[in-house]
Nucleic acid binder design. Structure first.
Length: 238
DNA sequence: TACCAGGTCCTCG
DNA sequence: CGAGGACATGGT
């Protein structure tokens, strides 16, 4: 069994798809988030990434977009507004994202935490070192590993590799075997230089591949950019 | 019609 | 620990 070169995987994906511009955020004056390829400078952009990371838990980004659009139009993409809004109303606004009661609770939890412990400031929260920040986020109800790591990578801009359902499926198919979150994260991070931009692009590319080629059902192995090194594609195409 | 989508928490053995 | 269920909308 030949070993998979995860840097080579990255090169193939980037050659095929190019830069993905993650994480999508809403431009000033607009309501709909877009992949803009822009670092989140403002508190509002960082907030939007956190909210998006919670909303997208086991949910398609399309539905999350609608929920974010609703939040923007209702002027709720704001720390103080979210702190004050009635949780039932918040739940209705984010309804398209599904699990809206749980997610409203999780958003409220996070906002309360940020206000009480960090004066509502992402700059203060993100000034923690990566390990402490991660443990802090993981201690919050509704923030698990993937959500925490997405926040750290895409909002705090610190180098950690995000593992999601696509990552797990793609990793298993190309021949890394069935691995859990921590194992996969370790494998990716030990195979790559510690680089926030690289990790950010890589994860985005895996999502792109998972959506368009390495789908759960009917994967398109024929023209997959990884077909030459993927054990699943080799078996599937033989 | 089922199944899927950028998970997490809780409970039970 | 690890499996299994709950949470819910919108697309195919």
């Amino acid at each position: 069994m030949d070993k998979i070169d995860l840097y080579e995987v990255y090169r193939l994906l980037f050659k095929k798809f190019g830069s993905q511009g993650w994480w999508p955020t809403t431009a000033p004056g607009e309501a709909k988030p877009k992949h803009r390829g822009k670092r989140p400078d403002t508190e509002k952009e960082k907030l939007e990434i956190v909210i998006g990371a919670i909303l997208t838990q086991n949910t398609s980004w399309k539905n999350v977009e609608r929920a974010i659009e609703n939040l923007n139009r209702n002027k709720l993409m704001d720390i103080d507004a979210l702190n004050l809004v009635d949780i039932k109303h918040l739940a209705q606004v984010i309804k398209p994202a599904g699990y809206y009661n749980q997610k409203a609770e999780r958003i409220k939890n996070f906002i309360r935490f940020l206000l009480e412990e960090f004066d509502g400031s992402f700059s203060k929260l993100f000034s923690m070192n990566l390990t402490d920040l991660r443990n802090k986020l993981l201690s919050l109800k509704g923030i698990g590993k993937e959500t925490a790591d997405s926040i750290i990578l895409y909002a705090a801009l610190k180098p950690i590799f995000v593992v999601d359902a696509y990552t797990k499926r793609i990793a298993e198919r190309i021949g890394l075997g069935k691995k859990d979150y921590d194992e996969l994260q370790k494998i990716f991070m030990e195979s790559l230089p510690e680089d926030q931009k690289l990790f950010a692009e890589y994860h985005a590319l895996l999502v792109r591949l998972g959506k368009e080629y390495c789908k759960k059902n009917n994967p398109r192995c024929e023209d997959c950019p990884l077909k030459n090194l993927c054990s699943y594609a080799k078996a599937n195409l033989s």
